Simulated assay, not measured.
Amino acid sequence: RVEDWQKYLQPHPIVGRLIQRLVWLELDNNGQIVNSFRPTEDGSLITNQDDEILLDQNHFITVAHSALLSSDDTAKWQAHLKDYKVNPLFEQFGALLSDMSKFKDGIIDDRLGWLTDSFTLRDVLKKLGYERDNSEDGGYFYSYYKYFNSLNIYINIEFSGSMLPEEKIPAVLYNLYFSNKKGFKDSAIALDKLPKVLLAEGYANYMAVANASSGFDPNWKDKLIW
């Protein structure tokens, strides 16, 4: 709520400084964006055009994200933060929401066949907060996941597999999907039913693995160990 944000966050001696390094959204009671803004040192709230605004006490506030704003607004905020030499508290505008209509059954697989190794894949996903899935018979596992308790949603990223104890072996990236139960690909959540920010960030994580790989290998099936 705007009232709580202005009472507990904005005037706080520590948090009040941190929130100046983020862009925020004012939402009406229907969840529609009214304004995007950033707090300044003097307590003003300014837009990416440097216009000062006032907040409606009956509205709500959430953190801005590129998946919630137009590409034009995102570009303007990036320019604004750069012009004001603001060091963002965390990245808000790096994960773009791509066209997801091309994917079926909630499975994102446009980086299927991109070749890397088990250690590189593990290191990228561990840094992003993912955990190794349970191992199957013989000590093999085939995915990493990240769980969001407040949403009861898992992000699952599958690959060709590794074994325990782990060794550095070729690894092929497979797919990304979201589920209410870990590893239930057959019941993947439809992409248009997911929160936009979660979808964008999950896809960015999938792309992070692809970007750390050597790229698509047309002979990827021949690189599988089992």
Score class of each variant (00 low, 15 high):
160 S>D: 01
78 Q>S: 06
189 I>N: 01
195 P>D: 05
163 M>W: 08
72 D>V: 11
9 L>I: 14
196 K>E: 03
23 V>K: 01
30 N>V: 10
76 K>H: 12
202 G>Q: 10
184 F>C: 08
130 Y>M: 09
46 I>K: 01
162 S>W: 05
75 A>D: 04
6 Q>S: 11
139 G>A: 06
197 V>L: 02
156 N>P: 04
18 L>S: 11
3 E>I: 11
56 D>M: 05
85 K>S: 15
150 S>L: 11
9 L>G: 07
36 S>M: 03
214 S>A: 12
173 L>Q: 10
172 V>G: 00
209 V>T: 08
198 L>H: 13
58 N>A: 10
174 Y>H: 14
187 S>E: 13
157 I>K: 00
60 F>S: 12
124 V>D: 05
174 Y>V: 03
5 W>Q: 02
182 K>E: 11
157 I>S: 00
134 N>K: 15
217 D>C: 14
208 A>W: 13
57 Q>L: 11
167 E>D: 15
140 Y>T: 03
31 G>E: 05
151 L>A: 14
222 D>M: 07
117 D>H: 14
6 Q>V: 07
80 H>P: 06
45 L>A: 03
71 S>L: 12
158 E>K: 09
91 E>Q: 12
107 I>V: 14
224 L>G: 00
93 F>P: 04
136 E>K: 12
1 R>Q: 09
30 N>W: 13
134 N>E: 13
182 K>G: 06
1 R>M: 12
2 V>C: 01
138 G>T: 14
28 D>Q: 04
115 L>A: 15
48 N>H: 14
45 L>M: 14
13 P>L: 08
76 K>S: 12
144 Y>C: 02
52 E>R: 05
220 W>R: 15
85 K>D: 15
100 M>P: 06
19 I>W: 00
205 N>T: 04
56 D>E: 10
92 Q>K: 02
174 Y>C: 07
131 E>V: 10
58 N>L: 05
41 E>S: 14
58 N>W: 02
216 F>T: 06
120 T>C: 12
44 S>H: 06
108 I>G: 05
27 L>V: 00
92 Q>V: 00
108 I>N: 06
134 N>L: 12
66 S>H: 10
47 T>P: 02
89 L>W: 08
50 D>C: 05
198 L>Y: 14
49 Q>R: 12
163 M>C: 10
47 T>E: 04
110 D>A: 12
110 D>Q: 14
10 Q>I: 08
104 K>L: 11
212 A>G: 13
125 L>K: 07
55 L>A: 03
166 E>V: 04
83 D>R: 15
214 S>T: 13
203 Y>S: 06
106 G>R: 04
202 G>F: 10
51 D>N: 10
107 I>F: 06
130 Y>V: 05
124 V>Y: 08
173 L>C: 06
219 N>G: 02
180 N>I: 02
38 R>P: 00
165 P>G: 00
119 F>C: 06
42 D>V: 08
105 D>K: 08
192 D>M: 11
181 K>P: 02
199 L>G: 02
43 G>P: 01
159 F>K: 01
157 I>D: 00
136 E>G: 04
166 E>D: 10
170 P>L: 05
153 I>K: 07
106 G>V: 03
